[in-house]
Design a binder for these strands. Structure first.
Lengths: 249, 249
DNA sequence: CACATTTGTTAGTCTCATCTAACGATGATT
DNA sequence: AATCATCGTTAGATGAGACTAACAAATGTG
């Protein structure tokens, strides 16, 4: 989707930002940066790096003398650190808050670091500051069945009776859409499916706090027809039973 | 930064995904999609849309008969809904969790919706499921000085004595790096600056839970030299006093 | 020192997404 | 029915970022 952007965060293309970041890291690690190493780190050919360096030189972001080691200008260092900081922040978010494995968190951060606005960064930092003073929050998330990571104690969505804090254990008020009648509406609270089925349901638009209207509901093996976000979807009963809802008050 | 991606989330370019999304929304809103409307929504020329439609038709994502209304195939609808769901999820995250204004949240979501991996989406949904059962968390964040949004009661970083929950009010253990001596180290807990200064400090890499080493510290008007994430930075005392830290135990 | 290997640059090509300009096709107006 | 405005398509150009292939420079080895 395209919304008209009000702020111009960066004047540089994403690839050029990546080169800057790569150079910064290479200099930090080895004390110098060479075309070959940049090419390897970014998984492009050396020829491509040469061209990029000329552009970065024209933008006064690197000190580029042909066939010599490459250094960042002050301006280039600042730009690199700006991106790198976003990378670290996003990585921490996906790893520490959402509980993703380090590598996946880093990859996700790579893809987003170029487009994180100042405002979103500010709010994200504030969220971390908040969490720093209320560490119980993340602990609670990590210990809840929904928040458990693969390898954790209550992973795989296995419900734990001790988890009173989050009260995610099935209770009277928790029903699946499989038991709803045609014409009824409800709000999704949780998708208990895992793996590919979970992803399929999410991709269809079935998210927490989304309204679901049941249109047709055959008994037994017949599919359940629902409306969600304006779209008509057909679900098997086995799938539908993985979507927990609450009836609006 | 570039990390080798293990999963191939999408086979489509971002612009093509945007066209799909735009068509989906236009059909939902008006019952049909025309080249002209797509061009307007995406802010490109009609010629560009024509070409994109040919590609989407080749990929069997739209039913494209020259000079007629454009409809999505089942496959196209699924792809569009996939992106749109990511858009909604990200928007809600930036709006409801981080407390950004609706428009800014939507813009940020636009920029990220194409690169959100299945795994990150899964974890993000789980986080929402968790928050649905522990709504006090977001309430606590929104009411803390750090989490207050512009317009909220304790916005602008004004500290509120009532906010005992988050204990963000200055306390004995809370000191700024301005009072640190050369050779001392500490961990950043909070950046109390706002606006451009805050952004500048963040961009330099000064984030919560980041280690800071003081290298040189002149008295009075002299700058404070610190190391942060391997970089040497010079800060004015007025700036340094906005960086709160705790000494490692 | 001569030659081979490694490293970097240049030239030319490709694809993608965009543009402008010109041209068809459709439909509305008088 | 003739004309005109709107809408869509085609053709051709541009700029970014990548590639290959060929060449040039630097570095090591016998």
């Amino acid at each position: 989707m395209i919304l008209t952007s009000s702020t111009a965060p960066s004047l540089m293309s994403e690839p050029l930002e990546d080169y800057l970041e790569t150079i910064y890291l290479l200099v930090q690690e080895h004390g110098f940066a060479r075309v070959k190493d940049i090419a390897k780190a970014r998984d492009v050919k050396a020829a491509t790096v040469s061209i990029a360096l000329r552009k970065l030189d024209e933008a006064r972001l690197v000190n580029y003398v042909r066939r010599e080691y490459i250094g960042l200008t002050t301006k280039g260092e600042e730009a690199a650190r700006r991106i790198l900081t976003r990378h670290r922040l996003l990585t921490r978010f996906f790893e520490e808050v959402l509980g993703m494995p380090a590598h996946a968190a880093g990859e996700q951060a790579c893809a987003m670091e170029h487009v994180l606005t100042d405002e979103a960064m500010d709010r994200m930092v504030r969220f971390f500051e908040f969490l720093g003073t209320c560490p119980s929050v993340l602990k609670a998330f990590g210990q809840c069945p929904v928040g458990a990571r693969p390898g954790d104690e209550h992973s795989c969505g296995a419900y734990s009776p001790e988890c009173a804090r989050c009260s995610l254990n099935p209770k009277e008020s928790s029903m699946s859409i499989a038991s709803m009648k045609p014409g009824q509406s409800a709000i999704v609270t949780q998708i208990t499916a895992t793996g590919a089925l979970r992803q399929r349901l999410l991709d269809m638009g079935i998210l927490p706090e989304t309204a679901i209207d049941v249109e047709r509901s055959g008994p037994g093996g017949h599919p359940l027809w629902i409306r969600c976000q304006g779209a008509r979807l057909a679900l098997r009963r086995a799938e539908a039973s993985n979507i927990l809802v609450r009836r609006p008050a």
